[in-house]
Write a protein that binds this DNA or RNA. Structure first.
Lengths: 103, 103
DNA sequence: CGGGCTTACGGTGTGCGTAAATATC
DNA sequence: GATATTTACGCACACCGTAAGCCCG
């Protein structure tokens, strides 16, 4: 289970359509389908009901959605926390990393 | 940033020694060093102070540790939540996945 | 010297993209 | 027939392990 897979899961759940979710994630449908399948296989539960019109959350997926959102939100909080630490160091004139790693 | 990197970070912080953390994680030192370096580069902050006797958390790393632990704990909660959903389905006799994906 | 972190190098595994196939309205 | 999901194939990227280098007590 990776953070990407969790983001993919949320995107598919919100769009209700794998193709549209893929476009939103800037990837193509096949990898997204496989990642969702892999996540389901790893968890041992079917998360979505596939229909010819799109996908729909099954009970297990519905229960998971808020928890996954919480994980991703915590990750964002981690990054923001780091930004604060970096700003503090910058104010003191510390040069932590010669290579800013532009991202 | 991956969940593995976050686990690695916690292990190194707890052991105060990359080599020992690597043995605990069942990997070797070089990959662990690289992953920590990559995490620092991606975040733009030095997390540890390298000394000849081991490593020590810098302020940024110290601030990050509890947040990272929270993320990992949420991930565990996600997995447990899934286990509950699966148990419920099993009681109803649902056969969700033909391939149990033995893990 | 000895312990510990880091860089170099080779091999393996995983994930993405394009193309083709299947099923439903 | 059109839309949506899935499988097949090929390629590139990333990670790990072993080996060698560097630094400090």
């Amino acid at each position: 289970m990776s953070l990407d897979q969790l983001s993919y899961f949320v995107a598919v759940a919100e769009e209700g359509n794998i193709g549209r979710a893929a476009r939103r994630l800037h990837i193509s449908q096949p990898p997204l389908t496989r990642q969702i399948r892999q996540l389901e296989s790893e968890l041992g539960v079917e998360l979505f009901l596939r229909t010819p019109r799109g996908v729909q959350l099954l009970p297990a997926g519905h229960a998971l959605l808020p928890r996954v959102r919480r994980v991703l939100a915590e990750v964002v909080a981690v990054k923001e926390s780091v930004r604060d630490s970096r700003a503090c160091a910058d104010e003191r004139g510390d040069s932590e990393l010669p290579s800013p790693a532009s991202r």
